[in-house]
Amino acid sequence: MWARCIVVLCLWLPCAVAPAFADGYYDLAPQRIAPDTYVFLGALEAFDFDNHGAVANSGFIVTEQGVVVIDTGPSRLYGEAMRAAIARVTERPVVRVYITHAHADHFLGNNAFAGVPIAALPATAQTIRSAGEAMARHLYDRVGAAMRGTSVVVPDEIIDRRADPLVDYGDHRLELIATAGHSPADLMILDRRTGVLFAGDVVFHDRAPATPHGDFAGWQRALTTAADSGFRIVVPGHGPVAENDTPLEQTGAYLRWLAERLRAGAARGDSAAELMFEPLPPRWAALAVQPAEYRRSVTYLYPALEGATLK
């Protein structure tokens, strides 16, 4: 704990005298995964002082009408690093930002995109409005100085779920796919020209799914929707890009296993912190951020199941 405080102080002191130091926080190198399509891969870790909160994937598509950005990362500095990296790829302006869902590692870079319309599903905008400040504070506590200058920018363009889900940016026709399950609103974006599916946190890959706001049934439906979308390349919210169904199947199988583990624990009478320390099967222990993510899942999801066994 004290070590951490000292680290914060050490980070802050040079910042105060040398603003350029801030550029060192995020070393964002866009990876081209399809024509006109790039991703920034996040660390397969929980938030900490070393990764500066850059744990989720973000990306962008360079179209004739300008650049479309998908998610803005955990901080203003991350968003600015994205813009700088985009500017090294194309001179075209950013014309729209899409936010996949209202978790801190996906939208807190919004204030680096002043003047650009930021679009999100209604529940995503609502959650950012009501809980965004608390999420930002939480992230400040976890990652420290890399968060400086970050403020909550609520998406200003609400995606109407009844409207035409197809939006053309030049010859890139994007399909906006509204789902829920990882969180109360999960937007996926399929580029019909390239077949790239930006799946947000509906899909995890080689990294344990984060489930604090998860709804298992809805999440499985969202995975089916993703599988049926006809994608050729999937960009998970966390983990490496894939050209097959593997990340979808992995996420679905993990969630089925997790739901059954929790159900069986409640039926046996396990206590929450007891179930948390049950060993994981090798397949799921091998995912990144385990067993921490499994333990978080128990913390958030088990009380309701456990409570339902009492009368």
Binding site: F47, A56, A104, A131, H138, D141, D201, P212, T299
Partner: peptide, 12 residues
């Protein structure tokens, strides 16, 4: 530890 990290809600 004081607060968990990850793709999560804040502590309340």
């Amino acid at each position: 530890d004081a607060q968990g990290g990850g793709c999560a809600a804040p502590s309340m």
